[in-house]
């Protein structure tokens, strides 16, 4: 018997079924939220709850189907090709952090500090630059962005300080 057909590979695997189960849970949650909306309006028109319920049902069905297929599949686990994990994790965290920093700092610290933090975090995403260079580069980018958006385009946002 080949490895692909071995019974060991046919047993239920929660790990492989997890994405499908997650999808089905998302469908159940969407259906629960849609319960507050009328399903049908006068004249047979679909109500505001109709399409959400339809989509939630589709998600549940697709999720269960995915879970069943993935759990009973007759092949070894396959790991999708991914970019280098460590490097991508650093980049992902730095760039996500750059957006979060802008959203956090802009309302109370102003445009310049927000843009400086964003530029610095984005520059720090890849290794190789010294911290001083990262901060200086972020400062230059923030200055240029402030010149473009505040001085050039007249964006009504304080350069420094709360809105």
């Amino acid at each position: 018997m080949s490895q692909l057909q071995s019974p060991r590979n046919r047993k239920f695997s929660l790990g492989r079924a997890a994405p499908g189960l997650l999808l089905a849970a998302l469908g159940i949650a969407a259906l629960a939220i849609a319960q507050g909306q009328p399903f049908r309006l006068a004249g047979g028109r679909p109500g505001p709850g109709f399409l959400p319920a339809l989509l939630a049902g589709a998600l549940m069905g697709l999720g269960v189907l995915h879970a069943l297929l993935a759990a009973s599949i007759r092949r070894p686990d396959q790991t999708p090709d991914r970019p280098q994990g460590g490097s991508e994790l650093r980049v992902g965290l730095a760039l996500s952090g750059a957006v979060a920093a802008f959203a956090l700092l802009l309302p109370w610290a102003g445009f310049l500090p927000a843009a400086w933090a964003t530029g610095s975090l984005a520059l720090a995403a890849a290794p190789g630059l010294r911290p001083a260079a990262v901060l200086a580069g972020g400062g230059v980018l923030a200055g240029l962005a402030a010149g473009l958006f505040l001085a050039g385009l007249g964006l009504p946002t304080p350069l420094i300080g709360p809105r």
């Binding site: 760039l95 957006v99 802008f102 959203a103 843009a115 975090l121 995403a125």
Partner: peptide, 27 residues
């Protein structure tokens, strides 16, 4: 690529703020 990414990130956040004026959109 690092420099390009930093420029794009700053311009994107500032551009989104300029177009919508909404911190919620940044989140």
């Amino acid at each position: 690529m690092r420099l390009l990414a930093a420029v794009v990130m700053v311009l994107s956040c500032a551009g989104l703020w300029a177009s919508s004026g909404s911190v919620f959109d940044l989140w």
